[in-house]
Amino acid sequence: MTYQPFFTEGADRPTRWLVTCDHAANTVPPFVNGGSLGLDPADMARHIAYDPGAAGVARALARALDAPCILSNFSRLVIDPNRGEDDPTLVMKLYDGTIIPANRHVGPADIEQRLNALYRPYHSALAQLAARQDDTIIVSIHSFTRQLQGRPPRPWHIGVLYATDERLTRPLINRMAQEPDICVGENEPYGGHLPGDAIARHGIAYQRLNALIELRNDLIVTEDQQTAWARRLAPMLVEAAGHAGVGSETVSPQSG
């Protein structure tokens, strides 16, 4: 089977929603160091290589919202599609205490190859999906580890990230805060904006409603957990969109 840098599902689904998953896979394409970054399989299964559980949530959420979904098919350690092209962390050489052997001596030509083969095709496809509707709403699904090495445990179950546009995220955070069993982080565990990141490129630049959702990865290990979170998030997103001035009748979630 020919390698593909991304996958899309439901491109013909009709609603304004678009679900993205920038760190869906830990795949290392064959042309990158023979298909290996020189890491142990255990490291490639960690959060440093991709966002565990995020792809399953993204697919289930897209079904629930009757929306298209786009998922990357390359490890964030190969090249990170949620960074600007000039970001110094675009290709990581050290992440959470782990040295990335295949990236230690990566040069401009190697990075350009990865940009052309992986990063740019993903963003081109994302841009086309986002442009299919006049009022696209982008929801980007990520996951985070409960504890980084040498750091205290993170208390949040879910984080909602944003830059300056709070039209969707503010009502979404307020809605989540009503749930007694959810500890929600506002711009936690990360800040909500990096220049040139995926939301900046496809959401903020076009004044599209957007939210980046981070789920703690130990809560979305199984397919059942991923589906349950997606089904829980879908009506919250619809309600938040209603508060943002998007008629809920146009974004009513479907059964997942």
Rank of each mutant, 00 (worst) to 15 (best):
R151G: 13
W156T: 13
A131L: 12
Q147L: 11
E112I: 03
W156M: 11
I137M: 07
Y162M: 10
T169E: 04
L115E: 04
A127E: 12
D134F: 11
L148V: 06
L168T: 08
D134P: 02
D165K: 02
R167F: 06
A125W: 14
A131Q: 14
A163S: 12
E166V: 09
L115H: 00
Y119R: 10
T136C: 04
T169Y: 09
D135H: 15
R167N: 01
R170N: 12
R104T: 15
D135I: 07
Y122V: 06
D110Y: 02
V139H: 02
G159H: 01
I138H: 08
S143R: 05
T164S: 13
A130H: 08
D135W: 03
F144H: 09
V139T: 03
I158E: 04
H123L: 13
V139M: 02
P121L: 00
A130K: 08
N116T: 03
H157E: 07
T169V: 04
H157T: 11
G150M: 00
Y119H: 14
A127P: 08
A131E: 13
A130M: 15
R167D: 07
V139C: 02
D165I: 06
L118H: 05
H123N: 00
S143K: 06
V160F: 07
F144W: 07
R120E: 14
T164F: 04
L118D: 02
H123Y: 04
W156R: 15
P121C: 01
Q133R: 15
R170W: 12
V139W: 01
T145P: 01
L148Y: 09
R154T: 12
Q147E: 15
F144N: 08
L129H: 06
Y122P: 11
D110T: 08
L115K: 04
D135C: 10
R151P: 11
R114H: 08
A117C: 13
A130L: 12
L161Q: 08
Q113Y: 07
A131Y: 11
T145W: 13
A131R: 14
I158Y: 07
R114G: 04
R167M: 01
A130Y: 09
R170T: 12
R114A: 03
V139R: 07
Y119K: 10
Q149E: 15
S143Y: 06
R170A: 15
E166W: 08
H157P: 09
E166N: 14
T136S: 01
L168H: 08
R146V: 06
V106Q: 02
R120V: 14
A127T: 14
R114D: 01
E166Y: 05
P153S: 12
